[in-house]
């Protein structure tokens, strides 16, 4: 495995920047630049880089879709949120519509924010492409077909012309796929969700989203520490604060940055990436959570430092 690329990082539903938000970012940038003269594009780029990500960029708004670049010819994705649409566009731009590709897609679960992108995944409509959809849910295929049936969508699932295959993965059992060893783990979420551990060539990536940690059972905690053990990267649902996750949003099926840090520290993980951002959070709010999480790691560190990042649409992490 070479790198991870994020195409969608939001939970629940897609969100978009508004004109007012863009205007506010521009005002902040221009106000800070007052009096400065930029002699070149390079000088402008350097200035933008110093503005801070909430001003110079955006965490984005597509729902969950994460690509793992294995180094091999076949594509590997986690989930089919709305972020799979720009992924598909990029794949077609790269290869052309006439060059068949294979896509391995691992599904955490079948709630709508994780499946909504399939009807807009253009490669699925092109004959010759091969789409293998993996998951541990018994109703995986039914859920994907249903969302493209009348009256929910005008284009029926049967119009997808790629060779589409559904593969059931037994939880806890290692499976060989696309040059990787893939293991799933049951997580707490309404209707169940599954985390994925991908191992290849000495590198390990864990995708653990839509997973609530009740904190009442030490055996449950130990199970996740084992699942995360020595991973190079853990992509972790940190949708709510700890206080919210165990009070007013208990049983909503999500977790927090605090639990992410603790589990990763106990498991000896190298990097924690906060994921599945609350749609109501703007860029400043996510940036504050990232700063808080880095500070938490710093003040609770007992061994090697844990790198902490917050996923944004378009982000790439080298492994």
């Amino acid at each position: 495995m070479k790198r991870v690329r994020f195409w969608g990082t939001r939970g629940s539903l897609p969100v978009a920047l508004t004109a007012a938000t863009v205007h506010r970012k521009l005002m902040t940038a221009l106000r800070a630049a007052s009096g400065r003269v930029f002699a070149s594009d390079a000088a402008i780029e350097a200035y933008i880089d110093g503005l801070g990500f909430p001003v110079s960029g955006t965490y984005g708004g597509h729902t969950s879709c994460v690509e793992i670049e294995t180094g091999g010819p076949e594509y590997v994705l986690c989930d089919l949120g709305s972020g799979v649409r720009p992924f598909g566009q990029a794949a077609i731009a790269r290869h052309g519509p006439g060059s068949p590709q294979t896509y391995h897609i691992f599904m955490s679960h079948v709630h709508w924010d994780h499946i909504m992108g399939l009807p807009f995944f253009t490669p699925a409509y092109i004959p010759g492409n091969r789409v293998r959809i993996y998951g541990s849910h018994s109703r995986l295929e039914a859920a994907l077909r249903r969302q493209q049936n009348e009256p929910s969508f005008p284009v029926d699932f049967s119009v997808l012309r790629a060779e589409i295959e559904f593969v059931h993965l037994k939880p806890g059992k290692p499976h060989a796929v696309a040059g990787m060893t893939v293991t799933t783990k049951l997580q707490q979420h309404t209707g169940d969700s599954y985390g994925y551990r991908f191992e290849s060539n000495g590198r390990t990536v864990v995708y653990s989203t839509d997973s609530e940690h009740k904190l009442a059972d030490p055996l449950e905690t130990d199970g996740f520490v084992k699942f995360f053990r020595n991973a190079d990267l853990v992509i972790f649902d940190a949708m709510y604060s700890l206080a919210d996750a165990i009070s007013i949003k208990a049983d909503w099926g999500h977790s927090s940055n605090v639990v992410g840090v603790e589990l990763c520290q106990m498991a000896g993980v190298r990097q924690l990436c906060l994921f599945h951002h609350e749609p109501a959070s703007d860029d400043e709010a996510i940036e504050r959570v990232l700063a808080d999480t880095r500070r938490l790691e710093e003040i609770t560190r007992t061994g090697e430092p844990l790198l902490v990042s917050a996923a944004y649409d378009g982000m790439e992490i080298e492994l």
């Binding site: 700890l242 938490l296 003040i299």
Partner: peptide
Amino acid sequence: EIFAISRF
């Protein structure tokens, strides 16, 4: 700080 970060 832990109380603040966790929003407790």
